Simulated assay, not measured.
Amino acid sequence: MSDITAHMDKAIESLKHNFGKIRTGRANANILSDITVDYYGVATPITQVAAVKAPEAHMLVVEPWDKALVNAIVKAISASDLGITPSSDGMVIRLPFPAPTEERRRELVKECRELAEHAKVAIRNVRRDANNKLERDEELTEDDVRREQARVQKHTDTYVAMIDDLLKAKEAEVMEI
């Protein structure tokens, strides 16, 4: 069961990470976690070469520790698919987050539902693998196998409910104006 729990926890963590990258109109530093900048020949995430702050709900401020990186960071953010136009004063970079339109919010909700469904599929795959292991175990009787499969199913239902709760919370956040 601990192996099953570990795999299911990874699916939940992956879902949380993916939800963190979805732009909701509210400034969120996680949105920059996958954008890399060339730092002395090494592709480095922006969050490792600069301080990312959210001074207000609809603004992120990126303050590089090495001021020579300002232009490289602006180019990396512009080249990404965030849809945000950075502005720089040579010292810091400001990223304004406009509120998404109603249509865009509905698209984001669909994207959230797809991510949640992928997480559910991952959890179901863990359940399937666990059930297959139980069936192949020759030391267990048929009744023991059924009992353990029921425990695995109960565990799976718990994690699917967790995904549904995360999805509900993210949908509410996305649809909030």
Rank of each mutant, 00 (worst) to 15 (best):
I123C: 03
N18R: 14
A11D: 09
P64C: 06
T85W: 05
A50L: 00
S87K: 12
F97L: 15
T36V: 15
R128P: 03
R124V: 03
L95I: 02
S14N: 15
P55Y: 09
D81S: 08
R151V: 02
T47V: 13
A116H: 03
L108R: 04
K170Y: 11
I22S: 01
H7K: 15
I4L: 05
G83C: 01
A50V: 01
I73G: 06
K154T: 10
L15F: 07
Y159W: 04
V74Q: 06
L95V: 02
D38Y: 05
M162R: 15
T101G: 10
A119D: 04
T44H: 07
E139G: 14
P55S: 12
R106E: 12
N131R: 09
V74W: 05
I12L: 13
V61G: 08
H17S: 15
I12V: 11
D157W: 00
I35L: 08
V74H: 07
K168M: 09
E138Q: 05
V49R: 04
T36I: 13
P100N: 10
L166P: 04
M59G: 09
S14K: 15
S2P: 06
L15P: 01
M91G: 10
V74G: 14
T158G: 09
N30F: 06
T5Q: 10
A119Y: 01
S88W: 11
D143K: 11
T156D: 01
M8N: 10
K170F: 04
D3Y: 05
H155N: 07
M175H: 07
K110D: 09
R124H: 05
I4V: 12
E56Q: 12
I46P: 07
D143C: 14
A79M: 03
N132G: 13
A27Y: 08
V160T: 14
I31V: 14
R147L: 12
K10Q: 13
K10T: 15
G90M: 03
V92G: 01
D81R: 00
S78N: 09
V62N: 07
G20F: 03
P96Y: 02
L60W: 01
S87L: 04
V42G: 00
S78D: 12
T141R: 13
A68V: 12
V52G: 11
L32G: 04
K75F: 12
A68N: 15
T5Y: 03
E148L: 14
D66A: 02
V145P: 07
N30D: 14
V109S: 11
K120I: 00
V70N: 09
A68S: 15
A150T: 13
K110G: 02
R127N: 01
E176Y: 01
R23H: 00
E171N: 01
V42I: 04
I35N: 08
E176T: 15
K16S: 10
A169D: 13
M91R: 14
D129K: 06
A169F: 01
D34K: 04
T44Y: 05
L15E: 12
K170P: 13
E56T: 12
P45Q: 03
S2V: 06
I93C: 00
A169Y: 00
R146W: 09
L166C: 06
A76M: 12
D137Q: 06
Q153N: 14
D3V: 03
H58K: 11
V109E: 08
R113N: 09
S88Q: 11
Q149L: 09
K110N: 07
A57P: 07
V145C: 02
I31G: 11
R136S: 14
L166D: 10
P98G: 11
A169N: 05
A99S: 15
L82N: 00
